[in-house]
C-alpha cells in the first residue's frame, strides 16, 4: 500500500533532497514510522517526544488537515496523498504577549 508524501524544503535534508517520497501505513503515525526507517530523523521533525504531532508542521491527507482527522491516529488508504508543510506562525515578542494578557480585564493573568 503506497502513499505519496510531499516533503517541504526544510525537511528535504532527511530525504536526500527528494520532494516526493513513498511510504506505507494504516495510520499517519505508522506512515511516519515507516518513512523514518528510510529517512533517518524525519519522524523527530514531525512528532514530539511525547508522541504528538509537532506544532511547527501542518500535515494534510488529500485535502484535509489531519488535526481534524485524529492527527497521528488518522486512517490512511491506498493511493492517499500526504502533504507536509511548515506551519507559518509567529508574533510579537513574548513580553508583549504577557503584557497584553495582563491588560485583558477578567483574564486569569490579570487577577
Amino acid at each position: 500500500m503506497a502513499i505519496e508524501v510531499r516533503i517541504p524544503t526544510i525537511l528535504r535534508s532527511h530525504t536526500g533532497g527528494a520532494k516526493i517520497v513513498e511510504g506505507t501505513g494504516d495510520t499517519l503515525g505508522d506512515l511516519f514510522a515507516d518513512l523514518d526507517s528510510r529517512h533517518d530523523g524525519l519522524k523527530g521533525r514531525l512528532v514530539t517526544d511525547t508522541g504528538a504531532l509537532h506544532r511547527f508542521v501542518n500535515v494534510y491527507i488529500n485535502d484535509e488537515d489531519v488535526r481534524f482527522l485524529g492527527a497521528l491516529e488518522a486512517k490512511l488508504n491506498d493511493g492517499d496523498s500526504v502533504t507536509i508543510l511548515p506551519a507559518v506562525a509567529g508574533g510579537a515578542p513574548d513580553f508583549a504577549a504577557v503584557a497584553a494578557r495582563g491588560l485583558r480585564a477578567g483574564s486569569p493573568a490579570a487577577r
Binding site: 517541504p8 524544503t9 526544510i10 508542521v57 507559518v88 506562525a89 515578542p93
Partner: peptide, 25 residues
C-alpha cells in the same frame, strides 16, 4: 517573501517567529 506585522513592537523577529521559521529560502 513571508511577511507579518508587529503592531506594538519593533520589526525584529521574536523568539516565536524564529522557532516557527520553516522556509529556509
Amino acid at each position: 517573501v513571508i511577511y507579518h506585522s508587529h503592531t506594538a513592537t519593533e520589526a525584529y523577529p521574536s523568539r516565536t517567529d524564529v522557532s516557527f521559521a520553516g522556509e529556509p529560502d
